[in-house]
Simulated scan of single mutants.
Amino acid sequence: MTRPVPESAAADYAAFGITNPTPVGISYKSSSPASQQTAQLTGAWGTISDPERVIDRHFAKIADNAAAEPSKNTRLVGTLQRVHPTGLGDAMMKCQNMSTRVAQRIITTPICVWADHYTYGEVVVFDPGALRNGGMGVSLGENADTAARIRNDARVPR
């Protein structure tokens, strides 16, 4: 199902280094009745001359926003990791965990961002059942695998 994209998204993506970005937002829900997992894709297509720079600027903006608004209780944790899950193809992907304080609990969720010369996407997989029980939900590697599958499904031949 499509998700609303903030009006500022195109300007943000242009600042990251995407020329003529067309923003998109999609939510996926697991088809398994036993799973409560959802995945959210936020991204754009356009022209990307330096995919790694786009990814690095994305994570820098997350860190800057967290520092500017500490009351939101969200921050990046651990180190930014370059990953190459099966099926990623010629794209670059980096992932990092993000923690958020909700009520009295810290919830940690991995964020994976890919970029190639035409597409860019941020994927976050949520597992509400695991998070409710104090777990992390999906691992960084599982999130990366899901992001690579979503990238392959979302791309169309040029």
Rank of each mutant, 00 (worst) to 15 (best):
M1E: 09
M1I: 07
P6Q: 08
P6Y: 11
S8L: 11
S8K: 09
A9C: 11
A10T: 01
A11D: 14
Y13T: 04
A15Q: 15
A15N: 14
F16D: 11
G17K: 09
T19D: 15
T22N: 15
P23I: 03
V24K: 13
I26H: 06
K29R: 12
S30I: 08
S30G: 01
A34S: 07
S35G: 01
Q36P: 07
A39H: 10
A39Y: 14
Q40E: 12
L41T: 00
L41F: 07
T42G: 04
T42L: 12
G43K: 04
G43N: 05
T47K: 07
T47H: 01
T47A: 00
S49Y: 09
I55F: 05
D56W: 09
R57C: 01
H58P: 02
F59E: 11
K61V: 02
A63Y: 14
A63N: 11
D64V: 07
N65W: 09
A66F: 11
A67F: 12
A67P: 15
E69G: 06
P70E: 09
P70Y: 10
S71P: 02
K72E: 14
K72S: 12
N73A: 05
T74I: 04
R75N: 10
T79N: 15
L80A: 05
Q81P: 09
Q81I: 08
Q81H: 12
R82H: 13
R82K: 13
H84P: 05
P85S: 02
D90K: 10
M92V: 10
K94V: 00
C95W: 06
Q96R: 07
Q96H: 06
N97Y: 12
M98N: 04
S99M: 13
T100H: 13
T100Q: 13
R101H: 06
A103K: 15
Q104I: 14
I107A: 10
T109V: 13
P110M: 03
P110S: 00
P110T: 08
I111W: 10
W114A: 03
W114V: 01
A115Q: 02
A115S: 07
H117G: 00
H117P: 02
T119Y: 05
T119S: 03
V123Y: 00
V125Y: 11
F126K: 08
F126P: 01
F126T: 07
F126A: 09
P128A: 06
A130C: 15
N133W: 14
G134L: 14
G134Y: 15
G135C: 07
M136A: 14
G137E: 10
S139H: 03
L140Y: 04
G141V: 04
E142S: 03
A144V: 01
A144R: 04
T146H: 06
A148N: 00
A148T: 05
R149C: 06
R149L: 05
R149E: 02
R155K: 15
V156L: 04
P157L: 06
